[in-house]
Design a protein around this nucleic acid. Structure first.
Length: 258
DNA sequence: ATGGTCGCTAAGCGA
C-alpha cells in the first residue's frame, strides 16, 4: 500500500501536477493539504479520471483545507479536534482496515514568541492538542501531513541558522518529538533515510534558484504506529516536482507499506 | 538587516 502526502497549495491550480504525480508514483491513498477551496469546488472529476474515486474533503473558502483521496473504498471518520480556531486542518479515514489521518499544522507566522505573535501561540496550542490527542492513541495508525516543523538538525539546510526561525525553534521541535514519542509513532522517512543524510520537502518561493541553494526544510511527514511501522518497505520524497512549472513550494512524500 | 515570491480574492493577508 502506497500512501502519499502533499501540500499542494491550491488543488485547483495544480490539478495537472496532481495527475502527473499520480501517474508517476501510483499512490493508493493521497493526502493533500492547503487545497484552498470549499468541498463543492474540489475537482472530483479530475481525480476520478486518475482512478481515485473515493474522497474525503474538508475544505473552507480560500484558505487551508485538507483532503484524503483513495483508489480504494474509504470510510470517513470524525476530524481530530486539534485546531483551536476550528479551521479545516484535519481529516481522517479508514481504508482497508487502516486508519489514515492528515494534518495541516499552522505555520506560526514570523516571530517565535507566543506572547506577541498570536499565530505562533495558535501553532503551539495546536501542537499541545496533538500531544494530548495522540498519547496512547494505539497502533495501526498512519499520520501524515504538513506538520510545519522540521524536527531534526538534518531536516534543515542549516541547523544553527534556523534555531530562531519558526519551524525549527526548540519549543516546536521538542513539542513535535513529544507528540511522536507519546503516540508511539515511527518517523517513516527517517527510518528509511537516517541522519546525517539531509532530507527536505519544502523550499521557499522567495529563493530564486531553489535547487542550486538547496535551502530546504523537512516540514512534511508520514508517521506510523505499531505493526504498520514494522511493514515499512520504502519512503521517498519526490523532489523533482519542485522543479515543475509553477510548482507548489512543497514536494510530496510517499511511503510503501506491507 | 532586509527583501525576496506565491495564491487567494479583490488590497492586503498568510505562507
Amino acid at each position: 500500500m502506497r500512501i502519499a502526502s502533499w501540500n499542494i497549495n491550491s488543488v485547483r491550480l495544480r490539478i495537472g501536477h496532481l495527475a502527473r504525480f499520480v501517474d508517476l508514483a501510483k499512490p493508493d491513498v493521497l493526502c493533500l493539504q492547503e487545497i484552498k477551496c470549499r468541498e463543492g469546488e474540489f475537482p472530483r472529476n479530475a481525480f476520478a479520471d486518475m482512478g481515485m474515486r473515493h474522497l474525503h474533503i474538508v475544505g473552507q473558502k480560500g484558505w487551508h483545507g485538507v483532503a484524503i483521496i483513495s483508489k480504494h473504498r474509504l470510510e470517513r471518520l470524525p476530524c481530530p479536534p486539534l485546531c483551536p480556531s476550528e479551521e479545516a486542518r484535519t481529516a481522517a479515514v479508514q481504508v482497508k482496515g487502516l486508519v489514515i489521518q492528515t494534518l495541516y499544522v499552522p505555520a506560526g507566522g514570523e516571530t517565535p514568541d507566543p506572547a506577541t505573535n498570536p499565530k505562533f501561540a495558535h501553532k503551539l496550542a495546536f501542537l499541545e492538542r496533538m500531544k494530548a490527542w495522540y498519547r496512547g492513541a494505539g497502533s495501526n495508525l498512519v499520520l501524515t501531513g504538513d506538520l510545519n516543523v522540521a524536527p531534526g538538525e538534518h531536516d534543515v539546510w542549516s541547523h544553527k541558522q534556523l534555531l530562531d526561525i519558526v519551524s525549527h525553534t526548540p519549543v516546536e521541535t521538542e513539542a513535535l518529538e513529544a507528540v511522536r514519542i507519546g503516540g508511539g509513532f515511527t518517523d517513516l522517512a527517517r527510518a528509511q533515510t537516517p541522519p546525517p543524510a539531509k532530507l527536505f520537502t519544502w523550499w521557499s518561493y522567495r529563493n530564486h534558484d531553489w535547487a542550486a541553494s538547496n535551502r530546504g526544510r523537512r516540514l512534511d511527514h508520514v508517521w506510523a504506529s505499531g505493526d504498520v511501522a514494522a511493514g515499512l518497505k520504502a519512503s521517498q520524497v519526490f523532489v523533482e516536482t519542485r522543479g515543475w512549472e509553477r510548482p507548489s513550494d512543497h514536494a510530496p512524500v510517499m511511503v510503501t507499506l506491507r
